[in-house]
Computed example of a mutant assay.
Amino acid sequence: MRFHSRKWVKPGDLNANKTLFGGKVLAWVDEEAALYTIIQLENKKVVTKYMSEINFMSSAKEGDIVEIGIEVIKFGVSSLTLNCEVRNKMTRETILTVDNIIMVNLDENGKPKPHGKTKIEYVRDRLAK
Rank of each mutant, 00 (worst) to 15 (best):
M1E: 12
R2C: 10
R2V: 11
F3N: 09
F3P: 07
H4A: 12
S5E: 15
R6D: 14
W8E: 14
W8G: 10
P11N: 07
P11C: 07
G12E: 14
D13Q: 01
L14R: 03
L14W: 03
N15Q: 02
N15I: 01
A16G: 06
K18P: 11
T19V: 05
K24D: 13
K24G: 09
K24W: 10
L26C: 01
A27C: 09
A27N: 12
W28N: 10
W28P: 09
V29D: 12
D30W: 07
A34H: 12
A34T: 15
L35A: 13
T37S: 15
T37F: 05
Q40A: 01
L41W: 09
L41V: 09
E42K: 14
E42I: 08
N43E: 06
K45S: 14
K45P: 12
V47T: 08
V47A: 09
K49D: 08
Y50I: 01
S52T: 00
E53G: 00
E53L: 00
I54K: 00
F56E: 04
M57D: 05
S58T: 05
S59V: 09
S59L: 07
A60M: 05
K61T: 14
E62K: 07
G63F: 02
D64M: 04
I65Q: 11
E67V: 06
V72C: 04
G76L: 01
V77F: 13
S79Q: 03
C84H: 05
C84N: 11
C84K: 05
E85D: 13
E85G: 07
R87G: 11
R87W: 08
K89P: 11
K89V: 15
K89M: 15
T91V: 05
R92L: 15
T94E: 07
T94Y: 03
L96Q: 04
T97H: 01
T97K: 03
V98W: 00
N100C: 00
I101L: 02
I101S: 02
I102E: 04
I102F: 00
M103Y: 02
M103H: 03
M103I: 05
D107P: 02
D107S: 00
E108D: 11
G110L: 08
K113R: 12
P114E: 12
H115S: 08
T118V: 14
E121W: 08
R126Y: 14
R126V: 11
R126K: 13
K129Y: 14
